[in-house]
Amino acid sequence: MTPRKVSRVALILVLSLLPALAVGAPQARSGFLIKQVQIRPESGQLVLNAGVELGFNDTVLEALDHGVPLTLVFHIQVRRARAWLWEDSLVDEQWRYTIRYRPLSERYEVHRLPSLNGRDFVTRDAAIRALGELTDQPLIRLDRLDPNEEYELQIKVFLDIEELPLPLRPMAYLKPSWKLSSGWTTWPLKP
């Protein structure tokens, strides 16, 4: 084969792979981002308000629109600042929320698990915005914190693949479009 033919074959091969690469490319704005955190004392405890931007990609949104419930986990930890790795956290909780589409009523429903009582929304965007807002969540009693010590709040939000319907789980394990997480975000906490 001449060098010119090799170049043509290589060019044809590259051009034939471009559509496949474009399909597998990550989509813009997908992923979770913790935008704001506010902690305030109230009735002898610290209360958390947080805003999370939930950037679901097209694959996950399509599943939601076809009635697949999505479960998000808000993993919350309160630790002493500069704590040793083996030190226990003062708070280590996972708050679970779910969003689902109800085709018969044409509404989206958001609720905190294990409760079955939720809020209904007419649009998907409104439901996703509400899902990303934590409001007046009790965090820790003030008497558990030393006023002379510094603490930090760590938050991570992720889509729980284990809660997907069984037929979807293998695909969710293999495709990066289902692995949505904010990663850990740390905020200072002073009693």
Rank of each mutant, 00 (worst) to 15 (best):
T2E: 09
T2L: 02
P3V: 03
R4V: 09
K5R: 11
K5M: 06
V6M: 02
V9P: 00
A10I: 10
I12G: 02
V14F: 12
V14D: 01
L15S: 06
S16M: 05
L17C: 06
L18D: 00
L18E: 02
P19V: 02
A22E: 03
A25V: 00
A28W: 09
F32G: 02
F32K: 07
F32L: 13
L33G: 01
I34E: 04
I34W: 06
I34H: 07
V37M: 01
I39Y: 05
S43I: 03
L48R: 11
N49E: 08
N49T: 10
A50R: 09
L54R: 11
L54Q: 12
G55M: 03
N57P: 09
T59N: 05
T59F: 09
T59A: 12
T59Q: 14
V60H: 07
L61N: 15
A63Q: 14
A63M: 10
L64C: 00
L64W: 04
H66A: 11
H66W: 09
G67N: 09
G67C: 01
G67K: 12
G67L: 10
P69R: 08
P69G: 09
L70Q: 13
L72H: 06
V73I: 13
V73Q: 06
H75E: 13
I76C: 04
I76D: 08
Q77F: 04
Q77V: 06
Q77Y: 04
A81E: 15
R82H: 11
A83Y: 10
D88F: 06
L90R: 13
D92A: 11
R96L: 14
Y97A: 12
T98N: 05
I99A: 03
R102D: 13
E106H: 13
R107H: 07
R107G: 00
Y108T: 05
E109P: 00
H111G: 04
R112A: 13
R112H: 11
P114Q: 01
P114D: 07
P114T: 09
S115V: 05
L116C: 02
N117D: 12
G118R: 11
A126K: 11
A127D: 07
I128P: 01
I128L: 08
R129C: 00
R129N: 09
A130V: 04
E133Y: 13
E133M: 12
D136K: 10
D136W: 10
P138H: 12
R141P: 00
R141Q: 14
R141T: 11
R144C: 02
L145A: 03
L145I: 11
L145E: 03
P147Y: 07
E149V: 09
Y151K: 09
E152A: 03
L153V: 12
L153Q: 11
F158I: 00
F158M: 01
L159Y: 04
L159T: 07
D160W: 08
L164R: 05
P165Q: 08
R169H: 02
R169Y: 08
M171R: 14
A172V: 07
L174P: 00
P176F: 07
P176R: 13
P176G: 06
S177A: 14
S177H: 11
W178V: 10
W178L: 04
K179G: 02
G183W: 07
W184S: 03
T185W: 03
W187L: 14
W187T: 14
W187I: 15
P188Q: 04
P188D: 02
K190L: 11
P191R: 12
P191A: 06
